[in-house]
Protein backbone atom coordinates (compact mmCIF):
# COMPACT_ATOMS: atom_id res chain seq x y z
CA UNK A 1 0.00 0.00 0.00
CA UNK A 2 1.18 3.49 -0.80
CA UNK A 3 2.32 5.77 1.98
CA UNK A 4 0.07 8.57 0.83
CA UNK A 5 -2.97 6.32 0.93
CA UNK A 6 -2.10 5.06 4.40
CA UNK A 7 -1.62 8.61 5.63
CA UNK A 8 -5.02 9.68 4.40
CA UNK A 9 -6.66 6.67 6.04
CA UNK A 10 -4.73 7.28 9.26
CA UNK A 11 -5.82 10.90 9.11
CA UNK A 12 -9.47 9.82 9.02
CA UNK A 13 -8.87 7.67 12.11
CA UNK A 14 -7.14 10.57 13.88
CA UNK A 15 -10.02 12.88 13.07
CA UNK A 16 -12.54 10.45 14.44
CA UNK A 17 -10.68 9.42 17.61
CA UNK A 18 -9.50 12.91 18.47
CA UNK A 19 -12.86 14.36 17.46
CA UNK A 20 -11.39 17.10 15.30
CA UNK A 21 -12.63 17.21 11.72
CA UNK A 22 -10.12 19.80 10.55
CA UNK A 23 -7.04 17.91 11.70
CA UNK A 24 -4.31 17.65 9.03
CA UNK A 25 -1.44 15.26 9.62
CA UNK A 26 1.82 14.80 7.77
CA UNK A 27 4.78 12.44 8.02
CA UNK A 28 6.59 14.73 10.43
CA UNK A 29 3.59 15.45 12.67
CA UNK A 30 4.26 14.53 16.31
CA UNK A 31 2.08 14.36 19.40
CA UNK A 32 3.40 17.80 20.34
CA UNK A 33 1.79 19.34 17.26
CA UNK A 34 -1.71 18.07 18.01
CA UNK A 35 -3.28 19.34 21.18
CA UNK A 36 -5.72 16.45 21.74
CA UNK A 37 -3.08 13.80 21.04
CA UNK A 38 -2.04 12.89 24.60
CA UNK A 39 -1.02 9.55 26.08
CA UNK A 40 -4.65 8.72 26.86
CA UNK A 41 -5.80 9.21 23.28
CA UNK A 42 -2.66 7.60 21.92
CA UNK A 43 -3.79 4.12 22.99
CA UNK A 44 -7.19 4.66 21.40
CA UNK A 45 -5.48 5.70 18.18
CA UNK A 46 -3.38 2.54 18.23
CA UNK A 47 -6.43 0.34 18.83
CA UNK A 48 -8.39 2.04 16.05
CA UNK A 49 -5.48 1.71 13.59
CA UNK A 50 -4.99 -1.97 14.45
CA UNK A 51 -8.66 -2.59 13.86
CA UNK A 52 -8.78 -0.65 10.62
CA UNK A 53 -5.71 -2.24 9.03
CA UNK A 54 -6.35 -5.64 10.63
CA UNK A 55 -2.89 -5.95 12.15
CA UNK A 56 -1.26 -6.08 15.56
CA UNK A 57 1.75 -4.11 16.72
CA UNK A 58 4.19 -5.12 19.43
CA UNK A 59 4.71 -2.92 22.47
CA UNK A 60 8.22 -2.10 21.30
CA UNK A 61 6.95 -1.00 17.87
CA UNK A 62 4.36 1.32 19.38
CA UNK A 63 6.87 2.88 21.74
CA UNK A 64 9.35 3.51 18.96
CA UNK A 65 7.21 5.77 16.81
CA UNK A 66 8.38 9.33 17.05
CA UNK A 67 6.07 10.81 14.44
CA UNK A 68 3.28 9.91 12.05
CA UNK A 69 5.81 8.92 9.37
CA UNK A 70 7.33 6.15 11.50
CA UNK A 71 3.89 4.89 12.36
CA UNK A 72 2.89 4.83 8.68
CA UNK A 73 6.16 3.13 7.77
CA UNK A 74 5.41 0.42 10.32
CA UNK A 75 1.89 -0.06 8.91
CA UNK A 76 3.23 -0.30 5.34
CA UNK A 77 5.84 -2.86 6.37
CA UNK A 78 3.30 -5.03 8.12
CA UNK A 79 0.90 -4.71 5.21
CA UNK A 80 3.37 -5.99 2.65
CA UNK A 81 4.93 -8.52 5.00
Amino acid sequence: MEHQKIISEVQEIFREVLDNDDLEIQENTTARDVEEWDSLNHIQLVVAIEKHFKMRFTTAEIQHWKNVGEMVHCIAQKHSG
Binding site: S39, L40, I43, Q44
Partner: peptide, 25 residues
Protein backbone atom coordinates in the same frame (compact mmCIF):
# COMPACT_ATOMS: atom_id res chain seq x y z
CA UNK B 1 4.89 8.18 34.39
CA UNK B 2 3.14 8.30 31.06
CA UNK B 3 6.15 6.97 29.14
CA UNK B 4 7.34 4.29 31.53
CA UNK B 5 4.24 3.14 33.39
CA UNK B 6 0.95 4.27 31.87
CA UNK B 7 1.69 3.60 28.20
CA UNK B 8 3.17 0.08 28.61
CA UNK B 9 0.26 -0.82 30.93
CA UNK B 10 -2.37 0.62 28.62
CA UNK B 11 -0.84 -1.08 25.57
CA UNK B 12 -0.87 -4.42 27.37
CA UNK B 13 -4.48 -3.88 28.43
CA UNK B 14 -5.72 -2.44 25.15
CA UNK B 15 -7.96 -5.38 24.29
CA UNK B 16 -10.10 -4.65 27.31
CA UNK B 17 -11.33 -1.46 25.68
CA UNK B 18 -12.21 1.47 27.89
CA UNK B 19 -11.74 -0.45 31.11
CA UNK B 20 -8.16 -1.24 30.18
CA UNK B 21 -7.52 2.50 29.97
CA UNK B 22 -9.27 3.12 33.30
CA UNK B 23 -7.21 0.38 34.94
CA UNK B 24 -3.97 1.86 33.60
CA UNK B 25 -4.99 5.36 34.72
Amino acid sequence: FSDYLYTPLAIAQRDRGKWGVVFAI
